[in-house]
Design a binder for these strands. Structure first.
Lengths: 219, 219
DNA sequence: TATTATTTTTAGCTATGTCTAAATTTATTT
DNA sequence: AAATAAATTTAGACATAGCTAAAAATAATA
């Protein structure tokens, strides 16, 4: 059983490994976790002892397969809880990180899969980051935006490209949220706007600018 | 800010104070928390220093007003999370305690009230224990069962009196769950059975025995 | 009431996880 | 290549929260 601190270090190393390749520096971890290099050294040695990381003095850390598996579990929990907080409890995506940071450490062999089912197996969190499945398989970040769709196409909304509150307010007003199902009814060459049905309801109009800023999952 | 252990001790003292009156023994707390008397002494002294409990050596502890307020916050969190786990995630009421025991320690000034709203302000948890409101006001355990209702009366389901799996299975089959709205349509003198509408759906028949074992909140 | 039993506290130890400061290694620059 | 700078590790400290064993206080019993 891993401690909160061990899980945090694993997750941190996992994230840093995705940004740069090669082993991860003690200092980078310390900065990211807002702790001190000396403390990181201790934890990293502990993770190595447990077979979760490979560590060479002065050279940096990497996760082992086992360590990455554990890191992905934490990432999965964090992102699923974020979906819950935004989709179900009505938080904004910029408010949920600290709470998810705590919820990701809840220990239970069944909880997270039940939550996943409850949320209907979301593939992305409210920031657009992919959610690992129960086996630790993880997709890449979304690249498709609404404006590549043609009339007749359908999709689900993943997240906004930029999280300016102006855009969020607009989306909220037209009842587009995380996971909304959209159907493109029409496209108008004149101004590049779209007519779109939201969750099989009434059709609304979206400007090019809006369409360019909504990440989607094409169906 | 309280630690997990401090919160656990406060909650424990709160619960024991409701069972017996007078100050609470160190030993009773230790037994309840599955720890040792010496450890409890330490924590209790700490709580006293923080103004959360009044403590006299060898005489036992009581919560101060401040301490009881904090205890009630933890109880509120625990029970609301239990409702979430049962009502939303599909756990049985005998499976949720350990998970709620962890969730109750999540720190956030907004989370629990949003959860309360999401769950539509339940008054009782799945074990029938009352949930303190945001101000710490708490009702007493339910005493009313379905069999006191007359045709035309309506109520919401609080919980089952005994949690035998037979009864739970039956209730599940007829789609009666925590928070279901029931309307008594008819009562049959012959066998004491009831005709009841569940959530404004179709009418079903409940035997006297079932009716005697469902705690309700009369509307 | 004196004695024994029980409860509670104190004292001292341990483990975890953090820190600072000093020592060491690695990297950079002249 | 030597000197300096930066990064990393080690050593030693501290706080929290738990424990055991011994001491002290209280309760129960002969």
């Amino acid at each position: 059983m891993l401690t909160h601190s061990e899980e945090n270090h694993l997750k941190c190393i996992y994230h840093l490994s995705n940004k740069s390749n090669g082993a991860i520096n003690t200092n980078a971890i310390a900065k990211s976790l807002e702790t001190k290099a000396a403390s990181v050294t201790d934890m990293v040695q502990k993770l190595a002892t447990k077979g979760l990381a490979s560590y060479l003095k002065y050279k940096g850390v990497r996760l082992t397969t086992k360590g990455e598996k554990e890191a992905l579990k934490v990432v999965r929990k964090h992102r699923l809880w974020e979906v819950f907080l935004v989709k179900e409890l009505g938080y904004n995506w910029d408010q949920v990180h600290d709470i998810a940071e705590q919820l990701e450490h809840i220990k239970s062999s069944t909880l997270i899969d039940k939550l996943d089912t409850f949320l209907e197996y979301p593939k992305f969190d409210p920031h657009g980051d992919p959610i690992p499945d129960a086996n630790g398989v993880i997709a890449s970040k979304p690249t498709t935006t609404l404006n590549i769709l043609k009339p007749g196409d359908t999709c689900t909304v993943i997240c906004a490209k930029d999280s300016s509150s102006d855009l969020l307010l607009f989306l909220d007003k037209v009842h587009i949220s995380l996971g909304s199902k959209l159907e493109v009814i029409d496209y108008f060459e004149f101004d590049g706007s779209y007519s779109v049905k939201v969750d099989n309801g009434s059709a609304i109009t979206l400007s090019t600018k809006v369409a360019e800023n909504i990440f989607i999952d094409k169906l």
